[in-house]
Design a protein around this nucleic acid. Structure first.
Length: 411
RNA sequence: CGGAGUGUCGUAUACCGGUAGUACGUAUGGUUUGGGACCAUAUUGACUGGGUUCGAUUCCCAGCACUCCGACCA
C-alpha cells in the first residue's frame, strides 16, 4: 500500500503515560492507539501484524485437526452458573451488563462454559468425537490493574481451542500434538529460541498444566529453565517434589523472568459433568466427554515480539509477522519507484511504498521505527549506480542491486 | 483492591500566587532534497468541581484519569 494512504503517523516521542517498551514502540510507530488503560485500538499496521500472527496460529491449529468458529462476546448468566463461575466473588474479573429488561449478561473472558454448552447440541455418539474447535476473538477481563502496555489489557485478542475427546487416552494424544503445534507457532513467529514449555499448576483435575513462557525482563512470571532438556518450571510450582517428578536437578536450572504467551490445560470432566456433555460409546453406554483447553494471547504475542525485537531506532519485525515485507522509499523518484511498486505487488510481495513528499531523513527514521524487514531506496544516487539500494532492517550494510533482481533478493 | 506518584497546546516539556514559554506537529509561503533540513508567518493548552486569596494553572480538599509497586491473574 501507499504510505500516503496510511492515516497513521509516527511520533518522535512516546507518550509520557506509557512506560512499557512494547506500548511505546507500537504507539510511536502507529500500530496501536491507547483508548484507556488496558484498552488499545489496533491500527492498520498493527492489524496486519495481528493478522499475520493469527494466520500462523490458524495454520498450526488446522494441522492438528482444529476447526475455526466464532463465539460470542455476550454470554448468558445461566451457562456460567452451572459451573459456579458467574459470582463476582468467584471470578472477580467479569465485565457484566444488562438487557433492557434487566437480564444480566457477561462479556466473555474465556469460553469453556459456552463452548461446552454449545457442544451438547452436537455431540451424542462416539462417532462425533473427537472435536477440536477454536476461536480467535476479543475477550474482556476486568483486571484490577492493567499494565505493561498490550501485555495485560482489559480487552485483548486471543485464540482459544477446546478439545472434546472420548477419553483420557485420546485426549493425551491430542495434548501432545498441541504442544508441538505451539512450538511450531513460536518457531515460526521468531520466538522459538526464547520460548520454553513450562510446567505449571494443573489445578484440581490434572497434575500439571503447561505454559509457554518467553524469556523477557518485561515478563511477570519467574521460571526455572533446564536448557539441556529444553523445559522449564514455573516458580509457583517449583519445589523438590516437582523437580524429582520431572527428573530435573536444581543445579541445572537457571532463573529467568518470562512472559506467559500461551497455556494448555487438561480439563478432564470439569465442564462436561455440569453440562451433561456425554456421548454413547460403542456399547451404547453413556460416557462423559474428556476436555482440554488451549489458549494463546495473540495481542500479547505482538507485544512480546516487540519487546524482544527492537533497537534504539525502533522495531525489527521478524519476517513472518512483519506488516509488510518491503518498505519502498522514494527519494524524489516517484516515477521510477511507482513502477517498482507495481512490479513487486504483481509478484505478491507486500510493499509499503513511501510516496510522500517529505525529507529523506524523515523517511529513513519512519522506516527504522516501523521496522519492515527489507528497505528499498529509490534515489537519484541509487539509479545512477545502476538500480536501487536494499538493506535489511537487522543489518547495517546496504547494497545496490539491479531493479530486475529485487524479487530474487527478497525471496 | 492496598500503597506511591503524576495531570500544562495533538505530542514532549518549561516557568510561575499576577500577560503561560519552548520544541516537534499542523497551516501558508519560500529555500532545500540520502538520516526526523532551514527561514518567515500563523495555529492550538492549565483534567473536573469546591475551598483559601484582591487574584489560583500554581496552595488546600474531593472526584476523575493515567503510571509505577504490591495483591490478583483459566
Amino acid at each position: 500500500m501507499k504510505q500516503s494512504q496510511l492515516f497513521t503517523k509516527t511520533q518522535k516521542n512516546a507518550p509520557k503515560d506509557e512506560v512499557s517498551l512494547n506500548a511505546q514502540l507500537l504507539i510511536r510507530g502507529g500500530f496501536i492507539n491507547k483508548e484507556m488503560a488496558g484498552v488499545y485500538s489496533i491500527l492498520p499496521l498493527g492489524l496486519r501484524v495481528i493478522d499475520k500472527i493469527s494466520d500462523i496460529v490458524r495454520d498450526e491449529m488446522n494441522k492438528t485437526g482444529g476447526v475455526e468458529m466464532q463465539s460470542t462476546a455476550l454470554q448468558k448468566k445461566e451457562v456460567w452458573e452451572k459451573t459456579n463461575r458467574w459470582d463476582d466473588k468467584i471470578v472477580d474479573n467479569w465485565f457484566k451488563t444488562t438487557l433492557k429488561n434487566g437480564t444480566e449478561l457477561g462479556l466473555g473472558f474465556t469460553h469453556e462454559e459456552p463452548m461446552s454448552n454449545l457442544m451438547t447440541s452436537f455431540i451424542s455418539s462416539y462417532k462425533d468425537l473427537p472435536i477440536y474447535v477454536y476461536d480467535i476473538r476479543t475477550v474482556f477481563r476486568n483486571e484490577a490493574r492493567a499494565k505493561s502496555g498490550i501485555m495485560r489489557g482489559r480487552e485483548f485478542f486471543w485464540k482459544a481451542l477446546y478439545s472434546f475427546s472420548k477419553n483420557k487416552e485420546e485426549h493425551d494424544v491430542y495434548y501432545e500434538k498441541a504442544k508441538i503445534a505451539y512450538k511450531n507457532i513460536f518457531d515460526r513467529i521468531g520466538l522459538g529460541n526464547k520460548t520454553f514449555l513450562t510446567f505449571a499448576s494443573g489445578g484440581t483435575f490434572s497434575k500439571y498444566s503447561h505454559e509457554f513462557q518467553t524469556i523477557s525482563d518485561s515478563g511477570e512470571d519467574i521460571i526455572y529453565i533446564d536448557k539441556e532438556k529444553n523445559i522449564a518450571v514455573n516458580k509457583e510450582v517449583c519445589n523438590d517434589g516437582v523437580l524429582k517428578d520431572l527428573g530435573l536437578e536444581k543445579k541445572n536450572l537457571i532463573e529467568k523472568k518470562a512472559i506467559e504467551v500461551g497455556n494448555i490445560f487438561s480439563l478432564s470432566y470439569k465442564f462436561s459433568e455440569p453440562f451433561h456433555l456425554k456421548y454413547r460409546d460403542e456399547k451404547g453406554e453413556e460416557q462423559f466427554v474428556y476436555m482440554g483447553s488451549y489458549g494463546l494471547g495473540i495481542s500479547r504475542l505482538m507485544g512480546t515480539i516487540t519487546e524482544i525485537n527492537n533497537d534504539e531506532k525502533g522495531i525489527v519485525w521478524p519476517e513472518a509477522v512483519a506488516p509488510f515485507q518491503v518498505h519502498l522509499l522514494s527519494l524524489s523518484q516517484n516515477e521510477e519507484a511507482q513502477k517498482i511498486y507495481i512490479a513487486l505487488v504483481k509478484n505478491s510481495i507486500e510493499v509499503l511504498y513511501d510516496d510522500r513528499e517529505i525529507s529523506a531523513g524523515e523517511k529513513f527514521a519512519d522506516s527504522d521505527l516501523i521496522g519492515i524487514p527489507y528497505r528499498i531506496v529509490v534515489s537519484k544516487k541509487s539509479l545512477e549506480n545502476g538500480g536501487v539500494e536494499i538493506k535489511k532492517r537487522n543489518e547495517k550494510e546496504s547494497k545496490i542491486i539491479k531493479i530486475e533482481d529485487i524479487t530474487k533478493e527478497i525471496k
